[in-house]
């Protein structure tokens, strides 16, 4: 069953002679629970694709269906609620709120939604992510790897339909990179979540179920590694 389907997605920056076609007619679909790695050289359009999939950036044309619903038919507020409930975003630079501690950062999407925090899930995530004892630390008191774990926790806290990770290990050393990938894989298996990851690292890509390679805004290769 497809959770995500995109049709003829195009994104152009600038106008006229200066126009840059970041995405040029991209179409594919992702099954529920699938682990997809998107690879490609710098400037190929993979980050743009991820942001459009996450409802962060609007496409110039084309459709993005999440659970059969065209997400860009929604207004800004509806799109914000969609991001909050359906998407978990993980960034290369973690993007944590510096004034909030670990627990507050992790529970941010739930609290923003005005809902009660699921304490059991929070405890479980903290346990899984190895953040015990760090619950009340501010981001500035954590290492890069720990900050990325918090970022993963924030993405998973709301049990979103899809988790999007943009170079989650790009800012980490190899030991931390390895741990983060293990965690992502673990959470994917444990919570049966759809995971789309953008990476330069072929080793990480090879751990995915499917690899989509993008070049010059187009899909150059789409291969299923394992089913």
């Amino acid at each position: 069953m497809d959770i995500l389907r995109i049709e003829d997605l195009r994104k152009t920056y600038g106008e006229g002679e200066n126009a840059v076609h970041a995405l040029d007619g991209v179409s594919f679909s992702v099954k529920k629970g699938e682990f997809v790695a998107i690879i490609g050289p710098s400037g190929s359009g993979k980050s743009t694709l991820l942001h459009i999939l996450g409802g962060v950036d609007r496409p110039t044309s084309g459709k993005v269906y999440m659970d059969g619903q065209d997400i860009y038919k929604q207004n800004d507020d509806q799109l914000a609620i969609f991001r909050r409930r359906q998407v978990g975003l993980i960034y290369q630079f973690y993007n944590l709120i510096p004034v909030l501690n670990v627990v507050e950062n992790m529970t941010l999407p739930v609290l923003m939604d005005g809902r009660k925090v699921n304490e059991a899930r929070l405890r479980e995530l903290i346990q899984t992510l190895g953040l015990q004892g760090r619950e009340h630390h501010l981001p500035s008191q954590l290492s890069g790897g720990q900050q990325q774990r918090v970022s993963i926790g924030r993405a998973l806290m709301n049990a979103p339909a899809i988790v999007l990770a943009d170079e989650p290990t790009g800012n980490l050393d190899s030991k931390n990179s390895h741990e983060i990938v293990e965690l992502l894989k673990l959470s994917h298996e444990k919570y049966h979540q759809t995971l789309i990851i953008i990476t330069h690292d072929e080793n990480i890509a090879l751990r995915a179920d499917r690899i989509i390679a993008i070049e010059d805004g187009k899909i150059a290769r789409d291969e299923v590694i394992r089913t």
Partner: peptide, 15 residues
Amino acid sequence: KDFGLLCSIGATKKQ
């Protein structure tokens, strides 16, 4: 940047 990030994780304009 805070506002942008909060938007990216689902904060509405009103919020």
